[in-house]
Design a protein around this nucleic acid. Structure first.
Length: 416
RNA sequence: GGAGAGGUGGCCGAGCGGUCAAUGGCAGCAGACUGUAAAUCUGCCGACGUAAGUCUACGAAGGUUCGAAUCCUUCCCUCUCCA
């Protein structure tokens, strides 16, 4: 598809495009309104975002790149209800304190992705500001009256629950109304005309557009969605061997983050380069010519570029160097130690099981034993098969001990 | 409000008085093969313990029994049908 708007053009070229409520009108609108604003909502269900949110973040980034103003809407209010989209069980309710803490963490995550010293710096909003003060009667009169239950029953998330005989509370059913009200509020407050989101949000977006059109008599309200991102084997993004891939470096280290991207499937590299890096498309085109093991180079570029955007260029370069030392040069000369021990601690040796659990390579002692018995435990690259094995002072090379679970999860112990 | 069906490990889903820490599938971890890829094959997959074993777990709380995920009682929750 050909767009007049440069934003939509790149948006589409990079693979963000899924559906739009009205392509021509949106294209026209973006082309003629340089001060356009668009928003995406983020639920406050955890104290950090994870890579599954990255698509949305990068869309807002791209939006800002073309001079428009992104609005980050954190769902402090809607999180109290819980979006039933895409889940077949009710979400457990969070306390207000937890939500407040989560919002803090999420805002912290997001700030790194935007420019603030410019005209079009991002606006951070929290829908709790308007949702928590509204009264029930007012809400029903002003908003509820414009929603058709018949139509809402056809929303995918509602229909799925009903079809599968799964519970759906009125609270959750009302989620879509809340989200529509968000759009209306942002429309009034900021003249925000566009709501962005993942394809699973389509139903909610459409409801919001309808509400704005009905109440404000404006044809210029748009919804634009991006495909729900899965890895080539159909799994949801964001899971790794070490659990969810958080954007908070205290919850998920920069090194592990880099490794996550380094380990993506061959089939995903090019797609991810387009979505999650700022590399020009013609450069990515060149990388896509790589075959077989050469693709590993593209993976390194991907890992470094994504990490640079999420955690800073310096941290990314460092993760690259560490990884090259560990994997390419097999060197023990690293800085990211997971455990420190004193000479006193290990005068009688230290048990391999203790090392595995303390470095986090194994969750429990039982798991550590299973790992050893399964042949997956390595000390300085030597396979350990005895669960009673103890590491001695002599095992430390330059005061450093390498311990691994399998070939990829590697940690270091430092001797002080 | 009435009647019926159901709530099992991260998820799905068997079991329906002892042999049940609970079949199977998915997910996960490790091994082999590779390129820190995919696919495939193999092993593991509640906690603690070298082990024997101990503890915690089949919605919650009681009870029956030598013994319960399985039977009984009450409660909580979900679904279906009826009014």
């Amino acid at each position: 598809m050909k767009f007049k708007s440069e934003f939509l053009h790149e948006f589409s070229e990079r693979g963000f495009l899924y559906q739009c409520s009205n392509f021509e009108a949106l294209d026209e609108y973006l082309n003629s309104h340089k001060n356009a604003k668009a928003y995406i909502g983020f639920d406050a269900t955890a104290d950090s975002l994870h890579v599954g949110h990255l698509t949305q973040i990068f869309i807002l980034r791209l939006f800002q790149k073309y001079g428009y103003t992104p609005i980050v809407l954190i769902g402090g209010g809607t999180t109290k209800i819980g979006d039933p989209s895409g889940r077949d069980k009710s979400r457990s309710m969070l306390t207000n304190d937890q939500i407040a803490k989560n919002i803090e963490g999420i805002e912290e995550n997001l700030r790194r992705f935007f420019k603030f010293d410019c005209e079009n710096k991002p606006i951070f909003e929290n829908n709790d500001r308007w949702l928590s003060n509204i009264t029930y009667i007012d809400f029903l009169r002003n908003i509820g009256a414009y929603f058709s239950v018949n139509k809402m029953l056809t929303l995918e998330m509602v229909a799925t629950r009903i079809h599968n005989n799964l519970p759906l509370s009125f609270l959750e059913f009302s989620y879509s109304l809340m989200q529509s009200y968000d759009f209306l509020t942002l429309f009034d407050k900021y003249d925000c005309r566009i709501q962005l989101g993942g394809s699973d949000q389509w139903g909610n977006l459409v409801n919001g557009i309808d509400l704005v059109r009905k109440l404000r008599n404006s044809e210029e309200a748009f919804g634009l969605t991006s495909p729900l991102l899965t890895t080539s084997d159909g799994k949801k993004m964001g899971k790794s061997a070490s659990g969810a891939v958080w954007l908070d470096k205290n919850k998920f280290s920069v090194y592990d983050f880099w490794q996550y991207w380094r380990n993506v499937s061959d089939l995903d590299v090019i797609k991810f380069l387009k979505l999650f890096t700022d590399l020009p498309l013609d450069e990515i085109e060149k990388l896509s010519k790589l075959q077989g093991h050469e693709l590993n180079e593209a993976k390194k570029i991907l890992a470094t570029e994504v990490t640079a955007i999420c955690h800073g260029r310096d941290a990314a370069e460092q993760a690259l160097r560490e990884s090259q030392k560990i994997f390419d040069q097999n060197s023990l000369d690293v800085n990211n130690f997971s455990l420190e021990v004193s000479e006193h601690d290990i005068k009688d040796g230290i048990s391999i099981i203790d090392i595995l659990t303390k470095t986090g390579l194994a969750e429990s002692r039982g798991e550590a034993k299973k790992l050893i018995l399964g042949g997956g435990a390595y000390l300085n690259d030597a396979k350990i098969t005895d669960i009673n094995h103890r590491a001695k002072i002599e095992d430390f090379v330059n005061n450093s001990l390498k311990i691994a679970s399998g070939k990829k999860k590697i940690k270091f112990v430092k001797l002080n």
